[in-house]
Design a protein around this nucleic acid. Structure first.
Lengths: 255, 255
DNA sequence: TATTATCTCATTGTCTGACAATGTCAAACA
DNA sequence: TGTTTGACATTGTCAGACAATGAGATAATA
């Protein structure tokens, strides 16, 4: 148990403090292993070849041969990318790019612990993010983004009224709004939380049509966002989120 | 380019829609690869053995033998955990646990571009979360949490006035507030974003004492949170975040 | 005795080769 | 024209070997 450097605030002396100021100027030396170099080479290759999301990467054998490293090294490098959702790999098929890659991208894993009332908690965090993203979208969206939002709304309403599965269309619609916020981090984090939310629901509870009652409100939401009316857009978004929250509570109480 | 299932909304017929209703009852079968089972087994083992952060995991050979899978399979599973920061591995030493693991933990990867703008973006997301957490803390904090906030404030102010490195005390102070919000997800996400924020700073820009001008305001923040005055607490928090934002912008413009 | 240098050994990192499992694509077929 | 089948390519898994390195034990030295 590594508890050495805990609560050092009482033992500090002037000398130690001065020493800290010197030490602080030093940065830890990066330990470079073979597969990090592979990752770098892959990034370079992807940039040079201009690979986009959905494109296929060279096979493991090709990469191993080209970089003259063992296939297992390639596999370990790809594995870490897979864990971060940058690529997806399919036995028999190949490896395809699933996220944008560039040399100045960093990939940050966030670990969250879900507990008993995790549904309401994830929803609580997601609400805050989604409301802010909506507000920013109403303010910042450009013409192209507004048109995309409108188009996605039509698909959503069509699916909904036809009795089809509207969840994918819903995700695309909200994705368009989040993208229009101008801060991609909102979209990323909301998407991840949304996935968690759904995994927990669809998997153990079997409740897939959560939030159905809120779909008609989406017409207003799109309208206000496209109009640039941030206050009203936020109000409708809050209403939508409240409906979902109420449904979640109802389902939790049922059990 | 896998573009088969794009925009299927126009080709749908009533029959297909009815079919969808049947199909919808089916859930996708989880594709379980070997290393996912290894991960599950590892989680089980860690929980059963009560391993804490800093503890050592069994060696790869032991795990492979125990689970009767090849060592490469173990390595691939561990690699994905390493990519997510759950474990650290050291050649010659061993594998140690670097994050809490439990069956209800989820790991959310986000990607950031390592450019000046991303600083503002992480700050933007963090601001929203931190303001909401502050509001909730002012409303929900119990007596014990209020006392902890006050105590952490004193340590922070002491370090600050002595000219020591106050960053750790600052993190602990905000951690106390976030914990008092009653929703642990806020604290977790804010902490992760905060770490990213600092990593980006300390590493390429070398600017470590960001937000120093906002420290005196922390006394007011603590006061209002402890008093339960949510509106004022939020106002001060916004002020603090604005100071940081201004400093970030200034540094960006310098370059 | 206390400290430092050295050695040994356990552990992760990498390579090679092999086979299994499975998706893709084109050829054969109705 | 649409469907089925099968060869092939590609990832998944295994085994064994050696290299590189860190930690702890041991020996040497003051």
């Amino acid at each position: 148990m590594n508890t050495k450097n805990k609560n050092p605030q009482s033992a500090k002396t002037a000398k130690k403090s001065a020493n800290n100021n010197v030490i602080r100027a030093l940065r830890p030396i990066k330990k470079r292993t073979r597969d990090m170099e592979v990752i770098d080479a892959l990034i370079e290759m992807i940039e040079a070849a201009g690979l986009k999301i959905g494109d296929r990467l060279p096979t493991e054998n090709e990469l191993a041969k080209k970089l003259s490293v063992g296939r297992s090294t390639i596999r370990e490098a790809l594995k870490s990318w897979q864990g971060m959702g940058i690529i997806t790999r399919n036995k028999g098929a190949g490896t395809i790019l699933a996220a944008e890659v560039s040399s100045n991208s960093i990939y940050v894993p966030i670990t969250l612990k879900l507990e008993a009332e995790s549904l309401l908690r994830t929803h609580g965090v997601r609400s805050v993010l989604e409301i802010e993203a909506t507000r920013l979208a109403a303010i910042n969206a450009n013409e192209k983004q507004r048109r995309l939002i409108s188009a996605r709304l039509e698909i959503l309403m069509y699916d909904f009224e036809m009795g089809d599965d509207w969840r994918e269309a819903d995700a695309l619609f909200h994705g368009a709004i989040n993208e229009a916020s101008g801060n991609p981090l909102f979209g990323q984090m909301i998407k991840q939380l949304h996935d968690v939310f759904n995994d927990i629901y669809v998997e153990p509870l079997g409740e897939a049509r959560l939030g159905e009652a809120s779909i008609p409100l989406h017409r207003d939401l799109a309208k206000y966002v496209v109009e640039g009316n941030a206050d009203e857009a936020v109000r409708v978004m809050q209403e939508i989120l409240n409906i979902v929250q109420t449904e979640v509570k109802a389902i939790i109480n049922e059990r």
